[in-house]
Simulated scan of single mutants.
Amino acid sequence: MKDVTILPFNGKTPKIHNSAFIAPGCKIIGDVEIGPESSVWYNCVIRADVNFIRIGARSNIQDGTTIHCDSASPATPNGHPTIIGDDVLVGHMVMLHGAKLEDRAFVGLSTTVMDGCVIEGDAMLAAGATLTPNKRIPSGQLWAGSPAKYMRDLPEPAIAGMRMGVAHYVENAKAHKAAIEAADS
């Protein structure tokens, strides 16, 4: 992976499935696992130096996103790892910190998701929103604003569109990987 930084930290080396796409400019540090057909786009930082980060299958982490986790404290003895399930869409320039995105969650452009938050499957956090600590977005709901609040239930076509977005990113990642390999040869 040319122009990608993969850095072991505290005895933990990132584990990246061989079918995943990691774009140039990415920095992946510490106790990170990235699953099959997932994609991490240009100039993302995934830093698991104080807890762990897991990214499931077919999830995409779009350009400029930063993912970190939270260390243990008296209030949270296990801290807050960041866990991203399968088929998750994470928009450009997102900040994820110690949160859980369940399978098929959607996080819009330039959002912030803070410690202890959970976004359930088929739920969406709208572009520009901030989900403050320990909030949960239930399945099928759209939340927006800063701080984010419930806006409405998502109609079935919107949920279907999110699923189509996952398939698009899997194919687009393959095309980018091929383009980079061709340019390097």
Rank of each mutant, 00 (worst) to 15 (best):
I46W: 04
A123G: 14
R54G: 02
L131N: 06
E171D: 15
C44N: 02
H92G: 03
M124P: 03
K15M: 02
I119E: 00
A160H: 11
L142V: 08
L125D: 08
D31K: 05
V88Q: 04
A23S: 12
G56W: 01
P8L: 06
R152E: 12
G116S: 09
H92V: 01
L7R: 10
S71T: 06
K135R: 15
A183M: 13
E171L: 11
G145I: 09
G116A: 07
E102N: 05
P81G: 10
F21R: 00
L7F: 11
D63I: 02
F9M: 12
Q62N: 06
K177D: 13
A127R: 07
G98C: 06
P157H: 13
K2P: 12
P14Y: 03
I55G: 03
M164K: 15
N60P: 13
D184G: 14
L101E: 08
K27S: 10
S59D: 05
V45A: 08
D122R: 11
I22L: 03
T5A: 12
D87A: 00
P147K: 12
I67A: 04
S39A: 05
S38Q: 02
H97C: 11
A144V: 06
A72D: 15
K27G: 04
N78G: 12
E102I: 00
V50T: 12
L89M: 15
I22S: 01
I34R: 01
G140I: 07
I53T: 02
V118G: 09
F52K: 08
G35V: 03
N43I: 02
L109P: 04
C117E: 05
E181V: 07
I16A: 00
Y169E: 00
G121Y: 00
G98F: 04
A167M: 06
H68G: 09
G108V: 05
C117T: 07
R104N: 13
P74V: 07
M124L: 15
E171G: 10
N60G: 04
V113D: 05
Q62R: 03
W143A: 09
P24I: 06
D86M: 02
K27L: 12
G79E: 08
V90W: 02
D63P: 02
A175K: 05
Y169N: 01
M93Q: 13
L131I: 08
L7C: 12
N10Y: 08
A72P: 11
I29F: 15
E156M: 14
S110P: 07
V113M: 09
T130M: 14
W143P: 05
A175Q: 04
S185K: 13
D153E: 15
K174N: 08
E33P: 03
V113H: 10
A129Y: 12
P77R: 14
L96K: 09
P155M: 11
S71A: 14
A148N: 08
H168G: 03
